[in-house]
Design a protein around this nucleic acid. Structure first.
Lengths: 148, 148
DNA sequence: CTATACCTTATGGTATATCATGGGTTTTTA
DNA sequence: TAAAAACCCATGATATACCATAAGGTATAG
């Protein structure tokens, strides 16, 4: 949850927001990050969730389907474990940082069970885009959410 | 639940009205707040309610769908947990206060399972708008009740 | 019926704990 | 052996927890 702006220092270190850490901490001290398939940002989650995603893909698509191959290749070929130190920092790789265009500031955006990391500029644009998009389709959304 | 005016101090602290707290207190001491999509106000609810919404979205859309991506970003990127202390206060963030234009007074308005926080001025306008809306529909309402 | 005592709630202030961030040192590895 | 990564400690800022006071409301006793 929440959106948090943290600095990336000269060594490439960045603090994982404490709220984010809290979710993982009980189990371990590591998360998994990979390049987003659809946006110029990094995605992160627990390894547990990624495993779950793997089985979901296996169930959802044909065993021999090209789609499954592509998705698994893209995500699992890219995913890398990051352990955070006693102060809660991780060191992102060049590949990830470059994909998201991050240099000195990382924006952590909560997504429930996973999160994303953006540059301030790109996130600002993305947020505006989403808001416009959702407002346009609001009737549908309202019907769905009003169910509860 | 009625409408309650509370002060916001220099640090952004504001007392959650006791009636509102009572609903949550049995379970926990925290609520979730986020910017309203459609109005200049803050919305609040229990985390439970937000989780429910999240699972609904997960069920209604598939993992890689753009809709799911948009909704989870919008909801969880914006929402933040607020734990209230022994005196029942929470500390609202700059982002939330700014969105609602709140400086020194917060108006709490009950909305069933959730609530809203307005400035006195904006709430006055909103209430007038709602009243006008209801009056517009009054003929229909009257015919219905006269039938009994 | 009124006045007082008690309880709840809001609000102001303060201290403590937590977190993000910077720098230095050691250990690993390429 | 040089560079990078893991580890450790220091510090300033900030949020959180706690205490004290004030105000309003209710119940009970006189």
């Amino acid at each position: 949850m929440d959106t948090i702006f943290n600095k990336v220092d000269a060594k490439g270190r960045v603090s994982l927001p404490s709220d984010y850490r809290a979710i993982v901490k009980e189990l371990s001290t590591e998360i998994v990050c990979y390049r987003s398939l659809t946006a110029p940002c990094i995605e992160g989650c627990t390894e547990e969730l990624l495993d779950k995603l793997a089985t979901e893909i296996e169930n959802a698509t044909d065993f021999f389907s090209e789609t499954q191959d592509n998705l698994t290749n893209l995500i699992f070929g890219d995913a890398k474990r990051f352990t955070f130190d006693s102060t809660g920092r991780i060191m992102l790789t060049e590949k990830l940082l470059k994909h998201a265009n991050i240099t000195d500031t990382a924006v952590f955006v909560g997504k429930g069970r996973k999160f994303q990391i953006w540059t301030p500029e790109n996130w600002e644009k993305e947020e505006a885009r989403i808001r416009a998009e959702v407002l346009k389709n609001r009737p549908t959304l309202t019907r769905k959410t009003e169910g509860e």
